[in-house]
Design a protein around this nucleic acid. Structure first.
Lengths: 222, 222
DNA sequence: GATAGTAAGTAGCAAATTGCTACTAACTGA
DNA sequence: TCAGTTAGTAGCAATTTGCTACTTACTATC
């Protein structure tokens, strides 16, 4: 059957349709590790297993809005960095019915989650490798981690994981965790020098040299 | 309403669901330009406008399979480079009903399309900029071009646009077209040297120095 | 068969970036 | 004051990139 034939015959009420959901992986850095927000399922299927927050897409709602809603329901957070990741549609990925899931990933500084009692964060690396996660959510997390790793070097997503103000050791640590490798201090500083600006303040309280506090430079038209 | 409540109440038959389609942009290089396969719509909506090949996803079919089917219907080609691009779900993108479209892009050497009378290829740049394309397919094409441009440098997707054998001037031209900039011959050659291997043959018939024919090296474990 | 035209292919230097080591600076606690 | 610790800087070597200029190999034409 060609596409034209199929379209001509198609009637939006007469064919069975898949359900569409959005699943969102919210990443943050805590304790020097990339961690991901997960919920424990109360219902069949995969009852008792960890899963990503997800919602069914409403008829009048954009996909982005559905993803934001899934995270808002769990965290109370608005306006966080959110990006579409990949769409998963394997028949059988949900044993109940055909479900097509549009996945998203989000990045927030851990401070933003402080109210949540930190309850639902789990190390992303472990989640990506665990065989004991609901649905195909383990693969989704792995996919998100890979996407982040790829984008760190040519975008500013790392800044989504800091507060407004940060020190360079903090920022470098974020880069290192996302990339999974250590970086040379001097080179790192040269590379990001153009994207940050110093404040005149310094950290204090540590028992070593204080570090200068920076903020992001919103591009002064190069 | 929280997610748990929503899930508990959800019954796969009682809610209205969006339709799910797959739209595929097949790119190739012809006449020194990136071109994309399009069809002219025979039906409402956007009758007479150019659109990407697309199909409704069948209940028992993976998304990848649906994308392959959409292209097979138009080209007769199997086993081409195919990658998921982005999922478009804006309510109103199809005036008939809520349609969520998972887009894919494909890359094929133009020789593979020879049988098709080349009928349906159009310059991708123009399609991406044209306001007169069906649905949001113009944006999808723009998104595909951008993805390709980003991936050229850190993957081998460019090879999907050559035949089995190629000359270095040909390959360089593909890179230049995909990247939208010219490259230095000597540097280009150094960079891809590790990923190709020479045959002992050369082109002939041109009225200048023949170029050596290469093929892709399937990685000999570095 | 010499020569002009053209594109393939190579050499090699300059500039920029990256890899890496080693230093100096600023704080605290003993 | 000194030891411990981390922040921050200097600077060289190695590699990659930007760029120019050359040599090579073919055809067509005089």
């Amino acid at each position: 059957m060609t596409e034209e034939t199929f379209l001509r015959q198609y009637d939006s009420t007469s064919y069975e349709k898949p359900s569409v959901t959005v699943d969102a992986s919210l990443f943050t850095i805590r304790d020097g590790l990339l961690q991901v927000l997960m919920t424990r399922r109360q219902e069949h299927p995969f009852r008792g297993k960890l899963a990503l927050p997800g919602v069914f897409v409403r008829m009048e709602e954009t996909l982005d809005a559905a993803a934001a809603r899934a995270l808002y329901d769990k965290t109370g957070l608005h306006d966080i960095y959110l990006e579409q990741l990949y769409t998963w549609g394997e028949p059988g990925r949900d044993p109940r019915m055909r479900v097509i899931s549009v996945s998203y990933f989000a990045l927030v500084p851990v401070q933003a989650l402080s109210g949540m009692a930190g309850a639902a964060l789990y190390p992303a690396g472990e989640m990506a490798a665990s065989p004991d996660i609901a649905f195909d959510h383990s693969r989704i997390i792995a996919c998100g981690m890979e996407r982040i790793r790829n984008k760190v070097n040519y975008t500013d997503i790392a800044f989504s994981l800091t507060g407004e103000e940060f020190t360079l050791p903090e920022l470098q640590s974020i880069y290192e965790i996302l990339l999974g490798q250590s970086l040379y201090k001097a080179n790192f500083r040269k590379k990001i020098a153009g994207r940050i600006e110093p404040t005149d303040r310094y950290t204090s309280g540590s028992q070593h040299r204080p570090s200068r506090i920076y903020r992001r430079k919103l591009d002064t038209a190069e």
